[in-house]
């Protein structure tokens, strides 16, 4: 659609700008301010320039947390996106069953994040939780998410899959619903296989919603805090201490405001950069596919 050229449109955007800027700009500037100062007491800071940045970038604990975060986010994306597509393909296309499925699917999305953590605490407890007891007693596999780092990590991943795959399903379902019936009829006449229909009709048509799904899931999983905080508290050891937890410990636990602020800005830029890469890659992938 050709758009009108009109700078007066700015008046329509102004309210959004003001509301977001109110909460975004001053706090962000405060963070920038902290990141270049050594703060002894409120109101007493000494300008230290890039020192905190240098310190934070050379912190091996931060490198570990960063690596852990990357592995976590990519694991979660690698499972949730294909699973979401698969489940979306199995959803019925009309009738009351769709409504029922959609409402059920949305349930995990509507639970406050610390409640999600609480649910999984009791669900996976080896003594009283359904999953914990089943895995230990019925399957005979020793499982204890509070003691074993691997179990703990897996529990956080499965919790995230449980929590967020529905979002991917909803988005993919939206994409699938938008495909005109004529496409499927044409494929039938050509005798296309189920796989060909998926590969050349459904997948390309889902590109737009998949982009949103990948970006939203990436951003949110990269910033995950509340759920692992409630479930494992970052432990055992540091096995589930992701970047946000590391940062919060630094800023509130140890009150290292300067380094925490410097780290915050680096964190933000990393998310920005990776989101941009995802955006570019997915846009270009689409160009190779016949439309």
């Amino acid at each position: 659609m050709e758009k009108w050229d009109d700078n007066k449109a700015w008046f329509l955007v102004l309210p959004v700008f003001l509301v977001v800027a109110f909460s975004a700009i001053i706090p962000l500037m405060t963070v920038v301010n902290y990141s270049v100062q050594d703060i002894m007491a409120p109101g007493q800071g000494i300008f230290v320039g890039p020192e905190w940045y240098r310190e934070v970038l050379h912190d091996p604990r931060l490198h570990e947390a960063f690596l852990r975060q990357l592995i976590y986010s990519f694991t979660v994306l690698a499972i949730e996106i294909p699973l979401g597509i698969a489940v979306a393909l199995t959803l019925p296309s009309k009738g009351w069953k769709v409504s029922a499925c959609l409402v059920l699917l949305a349930l995990p999305l509507l639970i406050p994040w610390n409640v999600v953590g609480t649910i999984w605490v009791v669900f996976s407890r080896p003594d009283i939780g359904l999953a914990g007891v089943t895995i230990n007693e019925l399957l005979g596999i020793p499982y204890n998410y509070t003691a074993d780092p691997m179990d703990s990590w897996l529990t956080v991943v499965i919790m995230d899959i449980w929590h967020w795959t529905p979002l991917v399903v909803l988005l993919c379902y939206a994409g699938l619903q938008a495909i005109p019936e004529a496409y499927y009829q044409a494929a039938k006449i050509d005798g296309a296989s189920r796989w060909a229909v998926f590969r050349f009709i459904q997948l390309p048509k889902m590109r737009g919603v998949l982009m949103i799904a990948v970006l939203l899931r990436f951003m949110d999983s990269f910033m995950i805090y509340t759920e692992p905080f409630v479930l494992t508290g970052g432990g055992p050891g540091n096995s589930t201490t992701f970047l946000s937890q590391f940062l919060t410990k630094m800023a509130i636990g140890q009150f290292d405001l300067g380094p925490a602020a410097a780290f915050s800005l680096i964190y933000f830029l990393v998310i920005l950069l990776l989101s941009y890469i995802f955006y570019t890659v997915i846009t270009n992938l689409g160009k190779g596919v016949a439309k």
Partner: peptide, 24 residues
């Protein structure tokens, strides 16, 4: 509906606010 000065930048700036970790 409109193309205006800085529209794409504005849109992107809005989205970046979704990318800032609340912990920050």
């Amino acid at each position: 509906r409109f193309r205006f000065l800085g529209d794409k930048h504005m849109f992107f700036w809005l989205l970046t606010n979704r990318m800032s970790p609340p912990a920050v």
